[in-house]
Design a protein around this nucleic acid. Structure first.
Lengths: 271, 271
DNA sequence: CGCACACTTGACGGGGTTCAAGTGTAGTGG
DNA sequence: CCACTACACTTGAACCCCGTCAAGTGTGCG
């Protein structure tokens, strides 16, 4: 079985197991692998695409099917007891939607499209049928358990990322995760369009909208990226990665701009 | 070796379509339900108990089996690329250990006992055998998917709990979750002993050790609980719950002590 | 134009981390 | 028994990241 991570380093289990992960790569769920996608597509069927703001299911709605995102994106919003809204996940192409509804039988939050989005439905009957025909597929090596295990692991890493990191690390990690996902989908990892608002990003990362905005401006001052509205162009991938891998609680606000013209920070914009 | 109770109930645990969840109840993983425990116990076997600090598996170790905690407790520590340690989970009795290793095939962190702990091993062969005999058991209604789905959901709620809540809410939620778990195990929910250090708690909740210590002192000032070393006695469950359900970013530092003798805050200890 | 909403930018305050020092408390060996 | 060490825990003071409040600037839509 192929590992999702750099498993080639672990030739022998007896070797010193110093396996570490990059927190920055844990900011978004990973898509299904090609093999898993094959398995799933045998038991799924296309449904009519969702328009922007249309919901796939409401909070508290009964669990019926799982879905796989084909193209577009969704956000899962969960409203808590104090009527606050929390964005618990963004779903990008290749990701399975609805896994967290299996246990309770009800969807824990609204899931709605951020843009025109098409999804495939995994029919439970087809799944049961698959279970009868190929029981191994659902065992320890089955794609289902693998997918859920990965989701669980990633969610766990997310907690750590957000708990102990400054706002700049969080945002850099988020943008890098997006970049990686776009590359996996065959799009440019350096230039892409955000389907979610600043407010959504802030909510997801536990930051105020103002902080997100300020950080994006700061990233541009540091010449890490260029942001015009929701269009993002990453200019310095290594720099952004270094930032995301930083561990300290020190923010980048007081970092000096490495560009020759050090005065443009306090001066007027160039145009 | 078969249990006299049949694991025949596979209905969804939750009856009403809950609209909202209490974040405070999401601070620790939930134990297996009785029915699930029955199913698991048919395919598990006891292993020799772990002593304090002994590890169940190391970080990067190959995934072989799942385990269920019988008694005692463990912590899962994950060391990241910057050599920092993060406690990603505490495992209490009834909880399944190792679910996050299925996808990659390697354990993402060290899991070691906080005290003398006994666990049951779930043999993969027995699991495969079960898959052959009772394929439905591993389908959408199977206990496995349910357990993982619940873990995923809880991890997601944890993120939201920790992202937007103040330190006092986090700690109160953690203590209440512990209390609930102890009650489920048949122990007193009001008086128990922490198996983890202040440092562990702080790491898990994303707080400095000093903050945990200060908060525990503050909780005592407010007569919510009594803490002597690792012994905890909850004096005001409702008050603690109200604190955990609070949503604001305002901490309790400037809250006035409601007790009649308002002077004992600045005065000498009673003895 | 007017309204709504997304986004930006500035000023300020507070919660919580960090630094620093002190106080138990357990474990070991004399 | 005490001395000694190591570590868990407490307590105090200062700083700073980031949330809040406030105001201003696009940008789209009727």
């Amino acid at each position: 079985m192929t590992s999702q991570y750099k498993a080639s380093r672990f030739s022998a289990p007896s070797k010193q197991p110093t396996q570490t992960y990059r927190l920055s790569s844990m900011c978004l769920p990973a898509p299904l692998s090609v093999g898993d996608l094959d398995t799933f597509s045998t038991i799924s069927r296309q449904v009519s695409p969702l328009r922007k703001r249309q919901t796939l299911f409401a909070q508290g709605e009964e669990f019926k099917s799982l879905y796989i995102v084909r193209c577009g994106s969704l956000k899962q919003v969960y409203r808590d007891i104090t009527n606050e809204e929390h964005i618990t996940q963004f779903y990008l192409p290749g990701e399975v939607v609805g896994l967290d509804a299996i246990s309770s039988g009800f969807h824990p939050g609204v899931t709605q499209a951020l843009e025109t989005t098409s999804v495939c439905e995994i029919l439970p009957e087809a799944l049961e049928e698959l279970a009868q025909k190929r029981p191994g597929e659902l065992g320890m090596n089955g794609c289902f358990l693998r997918v859920m295990s990965r989701a669980l692991h990633q969610e766990r890493m997310m907690v750590r990322l957000f708990l102990n990191r400054t706002s700049d690390v969080r945002l850099a990690s988020f943008l890098l995760a997006l970049s990686t996902r776009f590359r996996q989908q065959g799009y440019s990892p350096f230039s892409f369009r955000l389907s979610m608002s600043r407010s959504d990003i802030g909510n997801y990362l536990g930051l105020a909208v103002e902080t997100v905005s300020r950080l994006l401006g700061r990233f541009q001052d540091l010449e890490l990226l260029t942001a015009k509205g929701r269009e993002i162009r990453i200019d310095d991938l290594d720099g952004l990665t270094a930032l995301a891998d930083g561990r300290g609680r020190q923010s980048i606000w007081h970092a000096t701009v490495s560009s020759p013209s050090s005065s443009h920070l306090a001066s007027m914009p160039a145009h």
